[in-house]
């Protein structure tokens, strides 16, 4: 039976009153679909996002840095797990979501299609990319879907450690030798604009935003979040003694915010369309890890089935009582 207009209206009232939606509650199909799309995209971003940083684990310049980076990338795998689990509560399996990633049906954050070229990129990614992600994720701690919101609370705690880790690397470099400082500035130049693009297109060009706001999935617009991020990051760059690559960046007394230059949305859409510097490599790395792991997953499944059969065969009391 099709849900009545009443149900949709009641749902809207329910979320507008800041109530959380739980897996067994009734929800509009479109709400469920939007969430599966968003949460799985978020999970995929964590998993694909491991790759550009894993690129430097074997070359971390100190044992301490190696451990911190490894722990950080491991956290991202954990975030992926929480998020896949929370999307599974909406009725889509992890296998299905992973298939959608591998066939290109599902997206992940485009930022991970840029290469990590120097050690300073570990600083810039942690500081800017995780910083931008936090801006979005703090908002999502209050999202209307309960399992997603609870996953985000845990994730946010770890993400703030990630951001500090990135900023610490930048600080070491900015206070280091001339070469190290140049390395830090170069990384900032390359990561600044893509980080601003992470918030997505401007509100008037973001088709799903209004509905997501009404459902309380999203609480702030892309432009609001982007502005908050810029306002927070400019003084951090100043503290490092590094220059943000934007000649139009200046404090606007009247607005109480920093003004910044126009974003090159052509670049953004080119990367989303699959033409970023590393789209092919990232997807290929995920596909091949999955394909090469097939025999391992099959073995684990076969072994578990054999074990279950053995347990059943050696449990005569259970059989007897069933008979």
């Amino acid at each position: 039976m099709a849900p009545s207009i009443d149900m949709e209206a009641r749902f809207l009232d329910y979320v507008s009153a800041e109530n959380k939606v739980e897996p067994k509650d009734w929800m509009p199909d479109a709400y469920r679909k939007t969430l599966v799309r968003q949460i799985s995209q978020h999970a995929h971003s964590e998993i694909v996002g491991m790759l550009p940083e894993a690129n430097w684990i074997t070359r971390a310049p100190s044992l301490r840095a190696k451990l911190i980076l490894l722990a950080k990338v491991q956290d991202e795998a954990g975030h992926g797990l929480y998020l896949y689990s929370s999307a599974e509560t909406l009725g889509t399996s992890r296998d299905q979501m992973i298939d959608d990633l591998h066939t290109g049906k599902a997206k992940y954050s485009s930022i991970f299609n840029y290469p990590t070229l120097t050690w300073a990129d570990m600083g810039a990614v942690g500081w800017l990319v995780d910083g931008a992600a936090i801006q979005n994720q703090v908002m999502l701690c209050r999202t209307s879907y309960g399992p997603y919101s609870r996953a985000m609370v845990r994730i946010c705690k770890e993400e703030s450690f990630h951001q500090r880790q990135g900023y610490e690397i930048m600080m070491h470099l900015a206070r280091g030798t001339k070469e190290q400082k140049a390395m830090a500035q170069d990384a900032l130049n390359r990561w600044w604009w893509p980080s601003l693009m992470m918030f997505g297109p401007s509100d008037d060009q973001s088709p799903n935003s209004a509905q997501s706001m009404a459902w309380r999935i999203k609480r702030k617009s892309n432009d609001e979040l982007r502005q908050e991020f810029v306002d927070k990051t400019v003084p951090q760059a100043e503290f490092l003694g590094l220059t943000l690559p934007d000649p139009d960046l200046k404090w606007n007394e009247e607005r109480g915010h920093y003004d910044f230059g126009p974003i090159d949305w052509a670049e953004f859409f080119a990367v989303v369309a699959g033409n970023g510097p590393c789209n092919t490599e990232r997807l290929e790395a995920r596909r091949s890890a999955h394909a090469e792991g097939t025999w391992v997953r099959e073995a684990a499944t076969a072994y578990a089935a054999k074990q279950a059969a053995r347990r059943a065969a050696t449990a005569p009391t259970a059989k007897a009582s069933a008979a």
Partner: peptide, 11 residues
């Protein structure tokens, strides 16, 4: 890291 056969094993 990032290339395990399954997410749990990556961890």
């Amino acid at each position: 890291c990032g290339h395990g056969p399954i997410l749990e094993e990556d961890i």
